[in-house]
Structure formats: C-alpha cells, structure tokens
C-alpha cells in the first residue's frame, strides 16, 4: 500500500512542487497520474522512489516509512518497486538478457534462478529471439519492453511507469499499456504517469489529476479528454 499524509515537497522556499497531498493507493490497483507539464507528476514518482525527500508530512510505501527512512535503506525500498522510464534507461553495454538478469543479480538471486526466470520474462514481453541483442540494436518499443521485463524481474509489489509511451508510436503505446494491464492482473500495483489522455480514456482506470502540486481530481473508471 502507498499512503501520502499531508505531504509537502518543496525544492526551495519559493518552489513548492507538491502541496498537502493526501492519497491512498491500495495493493493491486491500477492508477493513472495525469496533469500538465510541471504540475508535480514526476516529483510524486520521485518521492515514491526516494529520489527526492518530502519536506513535511508522512509517506509510506510498501511498509517503508520514507519520511524517516535512513539513506542506507533506499536500495531495499527500490527493490520492492519496478520502475520504467520514458527514456528506457537500459544499460547500453549489456545485452537484453543481461539487462534483465542484472536486476536479479542486484538482489543476490542465484544463477540457477536467473537462468530460469530471465527467459520467462523475455517470453512475457515477446523478446526471446532478441536476448543477445544490445539496446542500441532494438526499436524504441522493444527497448521499453526490455525495461518492463527488468522492472518486474524481481517480482515487485509496485510498478511505476513514468511516461512509458512517450517515445513510441501509437500502436506500440497500446501494446505497452496492454502489457501493464497484464502486469496489474498478476496482482501488482501499477502507477502510470502520463499526459496521453487518449490512453487514459481508453483504459478507464482510477485517474489522479495533479495541478500546481495539488491533486485536483481522483476519479475511478478514468476521465475523458473533456475532463
């Protein structure tokens, strides 16, 4: 579960990125976070990953109390999250297989388990035949699918996707969203930050709208473009 209680995050005294956020996201939910550029969407995901610290309030992510958590525990928090970025952020000098395996090595997984599970995840994202390719040899959509496989490799409870369809075409966007829905059906909480309202409208999931650092709407079943 993710819980924000009166969370304020300011970069300096003049710039308040998030102001008085109160929010609960339960296990297994699928949530869109939408809003215009600079509204505070990315800051919210940065807080979840503890890339940024909250200025005041309380934030709990999968049992980790982020407002009090010491720095040395950050890696353990991040292992319970699977994160996908708009720009994929794959290791350019590792093959597709190694990129996925790397996430498992980070948590100290046994080689035998890695050998068994990486092909399973590559199969899930339909990249089995490209296991030995380097990211530079793949299309944007394929790279994002590798990022998805890496994000779920350690069986995280929460998957955060920050503009996952930002660098791919419409068809691939739909495919990636389908993949996220499948991941959600595996019982994982999925949070998708996007400004693509067509996708939000199509998939009809809980949608949080952020504006000027404040949650201005929280609707189940999605929002329409007119909203």
């Amino acid at each position: 579960m993710i819980e924000f209680k009166d969370v304020v995050m300011s970069y300096d005294s003049d710039t308040v990125a998030l102001n008085g956020i109160n929010l609960v996201i339960n296990d297994g939910e699928f949530v869109f976070i939408v809003g215009r550029s600079g509204a505070g969407k990315t800051t919210l995901t940065k807080l979840l990953m503890r890339e940024e610290r909250i200025s005041s309030g309380k934030l709990t992510v999968d049992g980790f109390k982020l407002d009090k958590m010491p720095k040395r525990k950050v890696p353990y928090l991040r292992r319970s999250l699977g994160v996908v970025f708009q720009d994929f952020r794959l290791f350019p000098n590792m093959t597709v297989y190694e990129n996925v395996a790397f996430a498992m090595r980070v948590v100290g997984e046994k080689n035998s388990v890695i050998k068994k599970r990486v092909p399973y995840f590559l199969n899930l994202v339909e990249l089995t035949d490209k296991a030995d390719r380097f990211p530079g040899e793949l299309s944007g959509g394929e790279q994002q699918r590798v990022a998805f496989a890496r994000a779920i490799a350690n069986n995280p409870k929460i998957v955060i996707a920050d503009e996952p369809t930002g660098n791919v075409d419409r068809n691939m966007s739909l495919e990636l969203m389908d993949l996220l829905v499948r991941i959600n059906k595996l019982g994982k909480t999925v949070i998708v930050v996007t400004h693509d309202m067509e996708l939000v409208e199509k998939f009809k999931k809980r949608t949080l709208t952020i504006d000027d650092g404040v949650i201005v709407s929280d609707k189940n079943g999605g929002v329409s473009i007119e909203d």
């Binding site: 990953m49 890696p75 999250l81 952020r89 980070v106 948590v107």
Partner: peptide, 13 residues
C-alpha cells in the same frame, strides 16, 4: 554516470 543512476534506481547498493 547514467548507468550508475539506473543501477541505483533498481536497488543496487
């Protein structure tokens, strides 16, 4: 440095 950042994002100590 970007690789290092990604390693940190996926929970590497």
């Amino acid at each position: 440095r970007k690789d290092i950042a990604v390693m940190r994002y996926i929970g590497a100590t």
